[in-house]
Write a protein that binds this DNA or RNA. Structure first.
Length: 570
RNA sequence: GGCGCGGUAGCUCAGUUGGUUAGAGCGAUCGACUCAUAAUCGAUAGGUCGGGAGUUCAAGUCUCCCCCACGCCA
């Protein structure tokens, strides 16, 4: 048994995420965590909300609430939705936690000690009305190049020339519209990632088994143009981790906070501390400190492609550069984007299905199955209602759900609601078991390699084996001449339901639990020995006929949802 | 403009280090079955593997050019 640390990219606090966000990190991470637990491994699965930065401040202001209150509220909302999707985090933390604040300040001090922090003096625009500095996109004005009046601080959308905010003519705040602005000299800390370039390069080179998407993005940032650039890790904001050198003040940095991208990944570690402080565990260091027991931990991160640079370069710089024995990631599984019906999901325009809405219209298993079996692994993939309806109806209702239905109902009508006695297994049953063992081995191999789509394909094929067997031995026909033989066939089929429930649980945990419950079995051990697993429910074992495990999505529903989610969020 | 992931049957996708007649699921057509959520099982038909050139005894699979879509960047 191995020990696995798994983290999902932490969703930003600002609003409810859409299905594309879900399938890009949290959902596949949950699949992997559930699978590993089912196989008996020790798993620590962590996620949190990413709460700092300007967007949170603005959203709070819009909601008319103090930012900390707003974040606490939104954390509750996200936690509830995550629970609705059965995301099995061992802890769902917050990047604004006290633990993360301390740890972020600690890392900054360590990096400074290692000579990896430098101070840079810059000129920025300060807004008196807003009482704050205005980062690039929070300032607009007339383009000095083409005269376009709505040029943004970082770039003119009209002539595409890149700009410095201080160059804008008649600059104004996009927050308040105020023109009472002033250029101010301000100091910031930069993380000297460029110093780590060669080390990071060798590290990435050694990861030959990582997804191409992961390594190609990392390589691009390492080698593009002048190579890896140093990155500013402080901001002139109120909402964030105050810039401190450990417990000590950082001269010249008063009133500043760390940039959200510096403290967010550190929350992966702080989250484990929160897990302990919440009374869920006793020792977080054995997961994160290689000098304190984390040597045998395998650490896997899940994320969408937009997060790859931070996880392959910035965060490793923090970890490696600290000079301390922190656990470094072993495998990064990255995902492309999920598109919605011919375009992108759009949070601002309310285009596509958001997590809360998805749960309103269908149980989480429907979404989990479709999203995972269509995960954007090799390229961007697309959600369409037609595809969703057809896939879910066919795979879940017809192939799996109906199998449980036809077997249990046949048994109830011809025998009783208990595993029937009589007959014996022959060559066809041996064949089924060996086919199943082979398919299961294939499924396990894909799961261990985190090949999500291929895992789903193998699982579905395992379900189909049951229908193929039934169709061939036709117990409804056998029953007329040899009830004992039919009993043996049904006995095997009933046991298949239990087995399917167990191996399907990483994908569809609720339905799996329902089926296992209907089979009145509390033995959910992974079937390492097919023959033994298919004998777990002996003759006479009682069961219940399950309710319709998966109902079908109707054409009317499909049409209705298609219209409902096409444009503006209600 | 630069860069990146892709462009394989109607749809969603597999195709290992180049090697016999290019695969799967869905959909379509036909057939079988009737236990079951009009479910299941089988069979068949569908592709000059984006286009062109090249390397090779042999290319979807390598090289070059071009086209298309999506994304990232300054």
């Amino acid at each position: 048994m191995a020990r696995h640390l798994i983290t999902s990219a932490i969703p930003y606090i600002n609003g409810i995420k859409h299905l594309g966000n879900l399938v890009g990190s949290q959902l596949p991470a949950d699949l992997y965590a559930r699978y590993l637990r089912a196989r008996g491994h020790e798993v620590m699965f962590l996620c949190a909300t990413d709460e700092h930065g300007t967007p949170a401040e603005l959203a709070a202001a819009k909601a008319g609430k103090p930012v900390d209150e707003f974040c606490a509220e939104m954390w509750g909302v996200q936690a509830k939705i995550a629970d609705g999707f059965r995301l099995s985090f061992d802890h769902f933390g917050r990047s604004s936690s006290e633990q993360n604040k301390k740890l972020t300040q600690h890392f900054a001090a360590q990096l400074d000690k290692q000579g990896l922090i430098r101070e840079v003096s810059e000129t920025q625009m300060y807004s008196h009305a807003d009482g704050r500095y205005l980062p690039d996109r929070y300032i607009e004005g007339t383009c000095p190049n083409c005269g376009f009046e709505d040029a943004r601080g970082d770039q003119c959308d009209n002539c595409t020339k890149q700009l410095d905010p201080v160059e804008l003519i008649n600059p104004r705040s996009t927050i308040s519209g105020s023109t009472d602005l002033e250029m101010r000299e301000t100091k910031h800390l930069y993380l000297r990632q460029s110093e780590m370039k060669d080390q990071l390069d060798r590290w990435i080179d050694s990861k030959t088994d990582w997804p191409i998407l992961t390594t190609s993005i990392a390589k691009k940032w390492l080698h593009d143009g002048d190579g890896l650039q140093d990155r500013g890790i402080t901001r002139d904001l109120d909402w964030g981790v105050p810039v401190m050198k450990g417990d000590a003040p950082w001269p010249g940095m008063e009133g500043k906070v760390f940039y959200v991208w510096f403290d967010a990944p550190i929350e992966y570690i702080a989250c484990a501390q929160e897990w302990v402080d919440a009374g869920k565990g006793t020792d977080w260091e054995r997961w994160w400190r290689t000098d304190k027991g984390a040597d045998d931990v395998r650490y896997t991160q899940f994320m969408g492609k937009d997060n790859v640079p931070f996880h392959t370069l910035s965060f490793p710089t923090t970890i490696l550069g600290s000079g301390e024995p922190w656990k470094l990631v072993d495998y990064i599984k990255s995902f492309n984007y999920l598109n919605y019906d011919g375009g992108q999901f759009s949070t601002s325009r309310g285009r596509g299905v958001f997590m809360d809405q998805a749960l309103e219209i269908l149980p989480s298993d429907y979404w989990r199955w479709w999203l995972l079996s269509h995960a954007p692994e090799s390229a961007d993939s697309e959600f369409t209602w037609e595809n969703f309806q057809v896939s879910v109806n066919k795979d879940l209702a017809d192939v799996l759900g109906n199998f449980a239905s036809r077997v249990t109902k046949f048994c109830r009508s011809k025998y009783s609601e208990a595993v029937p006695a009589g007959g014996a297994y022959g060559a066809r049953e041996e064949q089924l078991m060996s086919d199943l063992a082979a398919k299961l081995a294939e499924y396990e191999a894909h799961m261990e390699a985190i090949e999500v789509r291929k895992s789903a394909t193998a699982l579905r094929a395992a379900w189909a084996l049951g229908n193929e067997y039934l169709q061939e031995v036709a117990p409804w026909t056998t029953f007329k001449t040899d009830p004992d033989q039919a009993a043996a066939q049904i006995r095997l089929a009933l046991n298949l339901i239990r087995l399917y429930a167990i191996i399907s649980s990483p994908f569809i945990p609720d339905a799996s639990a329902e089926l296992l419950d209907a089979m009145k079995s509390d033995d959910d051990a992974w079937p390492t020995d097919i023959k033994a697993a298919l004998a777990a429910m002996p003759e006479g074992h009682e069961f219940a006929v399950p309710e319709v495990t998966f109902r079908k999505i109707t054409d009317a529903e499909r049409t209705e949802w298609q219209e409902r989610f096409a444009g503006t969020r209600d």
